[in-house]
């Protein structure tokens, strides 16, 4: 096994929020409560969960757009966050992001060429011919033609814009790409094309993906490993087979059961009702089964992520 490219250890993010009322004090919003994971080279790790579970905040912390309250993020063994971390330029060459909304993610007043050449120039590539070569190669890689470089975003369809967004994320040749719901705003037929493109690029360039998604069919299709988040915590972690074939945590099972899937709806394929055997459960309760909405203003009760099969972990209430 290769050493992890990115190591996130006990990440916490809390936001102070002005309380209600005129004299209301400050309350604390517990967004992310102790997330730890490794991301290996060439791997696709997905974080799934519903809105407000902290998956986007986790991603923003890794990108350096959100300061972590506690915990550490290491890239190739070196600190990647906080005061000892790299500058924004070094970070930019390590981690990039593909955004959800292809309509808001491109500057309407910049041509594709400007959007792609400015980062190159910023990162010290001055030769006009090299810039132009790299842009053309990049556009070809995402399935666009060189002639399209001089057009403005509004001249492209949603799927093409997402291709431009991917090109911009890859132009600095980062090792890690954060995919924030990369296909959920797209039509079914376009979605398939973008998923295929992302998988092709990953193979070709050995990219590591950290995908944020609520769409479990896409997650199953693309991921190597999956983290299921609820209320700022990982409630289950495992390989894609473990999560989708033998889900252990009740919340994971609820999520999978909720996917509207034509095959399941028509009972043409029975969804696996099997769940993982948990020999060490010992009457300990699952934490946060998702049946009650979490109170984000309360520090979560102590609990631990227990590994019960190789690589397959589930969150249980703390042992007494």
């Amino acid at each position: 096994m290769t050493a992890p490219l990115l190591q996130v250890d006990d990440l916490h993010v809390r936001f102070p929020i002005a309380g209600g009322g005129l004299l209301g004090g400050r309350r604390t919003l517990y967004a992310v409560n102790g997330i730890s994971f490794d991301l290996a080279k060439g791997e696709c790790l997905s974080i799934v969960g519903e809105s407000g579970c902290g998956k986007s905040t986790t991603a923003l912390s890794i990108l350096g757009l959100q300061e972590a309250t506690e915990g550490s993020i290491r890239y190739r063994g070196q600190p990647f966050s906080g005061a000892g971390g790299p500058g924004r330029m070094q970070r930019a060459r390590a981690v990039q992001m593909v955004f959800q909304d292809p309509y808001a993610s491109l500057n309407p007043r910049q041509t594709v060429r400007t959007s792609l050449s400015a980062p190159l120039r910023l990162h010290g590539i001055k030769s006009a011919s090299e810039i132009s070569d790299r842009i053309e190669a990049m556009l070809a890689d995402v399935g666009l033609t060189p002639e399209q470089a001089d057009r403005y975003p509004h001249e492209f369809s949603g799927g093409q814009r997402q291709r431009i967004g991917i090109a911009r994320a890859l132009i600095l040749e980062p090792e890690i790409v954060v995919l924030d719901e990369p296909v959920s705003a797209l039509d079914v037929s376009i979605r398939a094309q973008i998923i295929n493109l992302l998988l092709d690029l990953q193979e070709k360039r050995g990219l590591s993906y950290l995908m944020i998604s609520h769409d479990l069919s896409v997650v199953e299709h693309m991921s190597d490993r999956v983290l299921v988040m609820f209320a700022g915590q990982v409630v289950e972690e495992g390989g894609w087979r473990q999560i989708f074939e033998t889900p252990a945590h009740p919340y994971t099972r609820r999520l999978i059961a909720a996917i509207p899937d034509p095959d399941v709806a028509l009972r043409r394929s029975e969804r696996s009702e099997r769940s993982a055997d948990l020999p060490m459960l010992d009457g300990r309760a699952f934490v946060a089964d998702g049946s009650v909405a979490p109170d984000v203003f309360v520090r979560p009760a102590p609990s631990e992520l227990v590994e019960f099969a190789p690589g397959h972990k589930v969150r249980l209430a703390a042992a007494h």
Binding site: S217, V218, E220, H221
Partner: peptide, 17 residues
Amino acid sequence: GALPRLGSRSQHGRQRL
């Protein structure tokens, strides 16, 4: 065919959509 189907990866492996 363009739709990623739950369970198809464990049956058929990861194919392109």
